[in-house]
């Protein structure tokens, strides 16, 4: 693919990604967003800033995501400074727009810059800074060997196996976490929701979350400081969460206990001090 074609492809991909992010369905949003955040702007900026032949393929591969992230950081500051706000649309326009501008700039640079091969040759010959190693322009480490497409695919095949094994490790871990957190946390909470009325009763919202059907039916009691139970309710556990507003004495310390079926000791307890 020549350079013009690759730039056009990159531009189309950037616009497509922005469109997917703004208007696309779920999976396309994710794919478009990841491309815009991690790859496309960086590739375009690499094309703009450094001459193609002065960086190796490995360097380009790393510069792509690095410059994309750099644009996110510095571009985000610019968005904030201009008051545009950091929203999905502003991110998408920033990243896709910069990609397009960089590609256009790279095309202009190429058109009006000296021949790159000449630049490489000059650079390789050194620039007089011999103490630092002769002005290396392209890859070091000896000639890179290549193989035909068939052999390349055959050799790369174990990478598929590696990806599958890593995927298996991830699945195993998710399943392991899910099993280790299978039991819900049953919690009792209380919150005053208003002031005491003329009858000296104050409204309190009592909430029980994480109810387990096997432990039900639960029982909730409300008692004063003398220990006398003023209210005793059975709780429906099917919904998993139970909330009621109760009226309790304002001039007494209140104890609210939650019991599991068949247990005499409270399972959860909250305490409310006397109203001020």
């Amino acid at each position: 693919m020549n350079r013009l074609a690759s730039r056009l492809a990159l531009a189309v991909l950037a616009l497509g990604s922005a469109a997917a992010v703004l208007y696309g369905p779920g999976p396309l949003v994710v794919a478009g967003g990841l491309l815009l955040a991690f790859l496309l702007p960086g590739l375009a900026l690499t094309d703009l800033i450094v001459r193609r032949r002065t960086v190796t393929g490995v360097e380009r591969a790393v510069l792509g995501p690095a410059l994309s992230l750099a644009l996110v950081v510095l571009g985000g500051l610019a968005l904030h400074a201009t008051g545009a706000g950091l929203t999905r649309a502003s991110w998408a326009w920033l990243l896709a727009g910069t990609t397009l501008v960089a590609l256009v700039g790279a095309a202009f640079r190429q058109r009006f810059s000296p021949d790159e091969a000449k630049v490489v040759a000059e650079s390789a010959a050194g620039t007089g800074d011999t103490p630092l190693g002769g002005g290396v322009a392209v890859a070091t480490g000896g000639p890179e060997t290549t193989v035909g497409p068939g052999r390349f695919l055959l050799k790369a095949l174990p990478l598929v196996l590696a990806a599958a094994v890593l995927g298996g490790a991830a699945w195993l871990s998710f399943d392991s976490v899910r099993q280790s957190t299978a039991t819900p946390v049953t919690a009792l909470s209380v919150e005053e929701t208003g002031r005491a009325g003329v009858n000296n009763l104050r409204p309190v919202a009592v909430t029980v979350t994480g109810l387990v059907e096997a432990s039900g039916p639960y029982r909730l009691t409300v008692a004063g400081s003398d220990g006398v139970v003023a209210e005793d309710r059975t709780i429906d556990v099917t919904a998993g969460t139970w909330t009621r507003t109760l009226l309790v004495p304002a001039n007494d310390r209140i104890r609210i206990d939650l019991y599991r079926a068949g247990e005499a000791a409270p399972f959860r307890t909250t305490l409310l001090r006397r109203a001020v």
């Binding site: 967003g33 955040a37 950081v73 999905r88 998408a92």
Partner: peptide, 15 residues
């Protein structure tokens, strides 16, 4: 805010 910007951008863009 560099890291938070990256995280927010990815979260915003991808959902």
């Amino acid at each position: 805010p560099g890291l938070a910007e990256m995280g927010a951008a990815v979260s915003s863009l991808t959902g």
